[in-house]
Design a binder for these strands. Structure first.
Lengths: 190, 190
DNA sequence: ATTATTTCTTAAGATATCTTAAGGATATAC
DNA sequence: GTATATCCTTAAGATATCTTAAGAAATAAT
C-alpha cells in the first residue's frame, strides 16, 4: 500500500522515503464493501480518497428517483467531490463503491498540513487537477459532438476491460442514455 | 495591468511587490483585435493567456464545417487549451477574440521557471485547475440533467450581462442547440 | 447613404431518443 | 438448489430537437 502510493506520487514529483513515511502518517486506510457509500448525497465532503483497489462511482439521484452517474474511479485515482470539498457545500453527488474497495483517506486538515510539510504535494495536486480538467473537457467534447451510439462505441473501444466491471445500466446513465435505448443500440451491432 | 495581475494573484496566495515584478518580467502583453486568433485549431498551444480586457471563445470546426463553441473566457481569467498545453499535442480547439482583447502571455518556458522562482504560483495554478474542474463538472451536471430550454434559462439568469456580449448563435452552439431551435425557445417565452 | 456581411427568425417535415410496460435472464442469498 | 433481487431486453407510441430552406433584420464597410 505504501509502495503503491509511493510509485504513484513519484510519477509527478520527487519524494524521499521520509516524505512518503510522513505523508503516510496523515492518511487513513479504510475499506468499503460493495454498495457502501464513501460519501452520501447532500453531505459535505471532507476528504480525498486514493483508491488502492476497487471501483467507485459518483452519482446523483434526482427528484424522480432517477440515478445519474457522472464519474467512475479505479485503482490509482484520487476521487472526491471537488465542489463540495473545496467550497464546503453539500455534495450534489454520492460516492459509492461498486466493488469491495480499499482506499487511503486524506482529510482536508491532513492535506492542508501536508501541503506545507511536503511542498511537492502542491505540484502533484496541481497536475492531478489539470489532468482532471483535461479529462472533463474531453468528455464534454465527446458529448457535444457525438450521438449516443458513438459515445457507446467510443467507450467500449477506449476502455473495454472497464466496461466488464460495471453494470450496463450504470454505463447507460454515464453516457446519458436510457438503459432501454442502450439495449437497442447493442442489439443493432449484431 | 500590473495592479490587475497583482490583485488577482493575491486572491490565492501571498505575493510581495518583488514577486509580482519578477513574474511580470516573464509575461508578455499582447493585444488581439476582434476575430483574431490567440491559437488556431490543430496548432500546439504553448502559452496560457491572462485576460486583462476582452472576451475570448474556444471552439472547434468539425468535418461538416460546423462550429462548436465549448468555452467563453472574460477579464481576470486564464485561458488556454490545457490538453494541448500540457501534452503538447495539436489543439482540437481554436481560441479567438470575440472583442478586442488584451492579454498577458505566459509561455510554457516562462511558467516552468516561475514555478521554481516563485513557488506560490504552484498553489495559484493548483487552485485555478481545481476551480476549472469544478466549473466543468457543474457544466456536465447541467447538460446531463436539463433540457435545452432549461440550459438557456439557466445561462441567462446566472450570467445575463455576459449574454449581451456574445452573438446568439455562439450561445446556441455553447448550449449544444441549433440557432434555429434557440430562436424558437426564445419566441415561446414572449 | 448604400451595399455587403453577419446574424436571427419562421416553418414544415424528419429523426434520434425517451417513456411506459412487461417479461426474460442473471446473479445473489438463504 | 430454490427463491429473491438485480439486471437486461423488446416493442409501440410520444416528443424534443434537428434539418433544410428561405427570407428578415441588424450591423459593418465603402
Amino acid at each position: 500500500m505504501k509502495t503503491q502510493l509511493k510509485d504513484y506520487l513519484n510519477r509527478y514529483a520527487h519524494f524521499t522515503d521520509e516524505d512518503i513515511a510522513l505523508i503516510f502518517e496523515y492518511l487513513e486506510p479504510v475499506t468499503f464493501s460493495k454498495k457502501q457509500f464513501l460519501l452520501k448525497q447532500n453531505e459535505i465532503c471532507n476528504a480525498r480518497f486514493f483508491i488502492i483497489k476497487g471501483l467507485v462511482r459518483s452519482f446523483h439521484v434526482d427528484e424522480k428517483g432517477v440515478e445519474n452517474v457522472n464519474l467512475f474511479a479505479i485503482e490509482n485515482w484520487w476521487v472526491t467531490n471537488l465542489d463540495s470539498f473545496v467550497n464546503q457545500t453539500p455534495s450534489h453527488n454520492a460516492l459509492q463503491a461498486i466493488e469491495n474497495t480499499s482506499v487511503l483517506v486524506a482529510s482536508r486538515e491532513a492535506l492542508d498540513i501536508l501541503y506545507t510539510k511536503v511542498p511537492q504535494l502542491e505540484r502533484v495536486f496541481r497536475i492531478i487537477a489539470e489532468k482532471l480538467s483535461i479529462a472533463l473537457q474531453r468528455k464534454d467534447e465527446i458529448f457535444m459532438k457525438t450521438s449516443s451510439k458513438d459515445r457507446y462505441y467510443n467507450l467500449i473501444h477506449t476502455i473495454p476491460n472497464f466496461v466488464q466491471r460495471v453494470p450496463q445500466y450504470m454505463i447507460a446513465s454515464y453516457l446519458d442514455i436510457t438503459p432501454e435505448y442502450l439495449s437497442e443500440i447493442r442489439r443493432k451491432v449484431n
